[in-house]
Amino acid sequence: LQAFIKTLTGKTFTVEMEPSDTIENLKAKIQDKEGIPPDQQRLIFAGKQLEDGRTLSDYNIQKESTLHLVL
């Protein structure tokens, strides 16, 4: 599935991932794409901060969901 990552500066980019991917995997993909170390990334979806060990499906993240990236 493709999801949108929106930063506080208003920049939006897309990442490809599977519902079974962990938040940790997602942070690694963001690092590959944007060069931001995972330990500096905080991802917010539906008002909740996402925990590394959980999966996208745990948070009911669907295709074309928008996640907010806070540094």
Rank of each mutant, 00 (worst) to 15 (best):
L1E: 04
L1K: 05
Q2P: 06
F4Q: 10
I5M: 02
I5Q: 02
K6R: 12
T7A: 05
L8Y: 13
L8N: 14
T9N: 13
T9W: 15
T9H: 12
G10T: 03
G10L: 03
K11A: 08
K11G: 06
K11C: 08
T12S: 10
F13T: 01
F13K: 00
T14I: 13
V15T: 02
V15Q: 01
E16A: 09
E16V: 11
E18N: 13
E18I: 11
P19H: 09
D21N: 06
D21K: 03
D21W: 11
T22Q: 03
T22A: 03
I23K: 00
I23L: 05
E24M: 13
N25W: 10
N25Q: 14
N25D: 12
L26E: 00
L26T: 01
K27C: 02
K27A: 01
A28W: 12
A28Q: 13
K29E: 03
K29M: 08
I30A: 00
I30S: 00
Q31F: 15
K33A: 11
K33E: 07
E34I: 15
G35K: 06
P38N: 06
P38A: 15
P38G: 07
P38Q: 13
D39S: 13
D39A: 13
Q40Y: 10
Q41A: 04
Q41M: 13
Q41F: 15
L43F: 05
L43V: 05
I44W: 15
F45L: 08
F45N: 02
F45W: 09
A46C: 09
A46S: 08
G47H: 05
G47M: 03
G47I: 02
K48V: 14
Q49P: 11
L50S: 01
E51W: 04
E51P: 02
D52M: 05
G53A: 10
G53Y: 10
R54L: 11
R54G: 06
T55I: 08
D58C: 03
D58N: 04
Y59K: 01
Y59M: 04
N60F: 07
N60K: 08
I61D: 04
I61A: 04
I61H: 04
Q62M: 12
K63C: 06
K63I: 08
E64M: 10
E64P: 04
E64R: 08
T66P: 07
T66Q: 08
T66W: 08
L67N: 02
H68F: 14
H68P: 02
L69Y: 01
L69E: 01
L69F: 06
L71N: 07
